[in-house]
Design a protein around this nucleic acid. Structure first.
Lengths: 112, 112
DNA sequence: ATTCCATATCCATCACCATCGATATCGAAG
DNA sequence: CTTCGATATCGATGGTGATGGATATGGAAT
């Protein structure tokens, strides 16, 4: 799941989408999304990125499969919301797995 | 630079290499690498991953360009070492840029 | 100078992916 | 039921990247 998240984030467009969501709800469907929800609909992402609608749908699907966002139909729109827990999990895993440990004891397969 | 790091990490092989480095120096050139350095040489990565040597060199180059590792010739070997500062920078940036902010004031381009 | 070892580079191949036009789906009105 | 708006899916295309064989480089030792 971590690799899927990293793959999802390692794309300029998808990173920008999440970045933009984190900043706050800027949507044409604001009557459906509260400010604290940080959500948006597909058309908003299309407007911001300038990409075609199928492309945006594709990116949002990747983000959703990675667990970084979740979607929810609200009225005429499909709204997407960021998932803070997923980001937390990612950060925690990255620190635990990639941060160098100089502790000789924790090194199961020690050297030489 | 963040996108480059994410791209570098979003590959199973490269993630495994960094993961394995973080665990500690397990190398055939241990007389050149102290345990606390968490380094290794190319041949070690070849042995662990089972990949061809050119492939491993390619992956290490990607990691180096992303700033996640740095290389240093030691005797007959080219040794690679993880860069904790880069990982720190990545984690800090991810939290700052992607973690949802529900603070209405910080939202420059507010909604509606 | 030659040989050997470790690694980097070159090059070709294959697979995956971002992109978008066309089309399908789906719900809400009218 | 038909229409319309919003989004998802399909299919094709171009580009990027992972992989490895062949080869070049570079240093150390004989």
């Amino acid at each position: 799941m971590v690799l899927a998240m990293l793959h999802a984030l390692a794309d300029k467009t998808r990173f920008t989408i999440l970045q933009w969501m984190a900043k706050g709800a800027i949507a044409t469907c604001c009557d459906r999304i509260a400010a604290f929800e940080n959500g948006c609909c597909v058309a908003d992402v299309v407007a911001v990125t300038g990409l075609a609608q199928p492309t945006v749908s594709h990116h949002l699907k990747v983000l959703e499969k990675a667990g970084l966002v979740h979607k929810e139909p609200r009225g005429p729109w499909t709204c997407y919301f960021p998932n803070p827990q997923a980001i937390d999990a990612l950060l925690t895993t990255l620190r635990a797995e990639l941060y160098p440990k100089n502790d000789a004891e924790s090194n199961g397969s020690s050297c030489c």
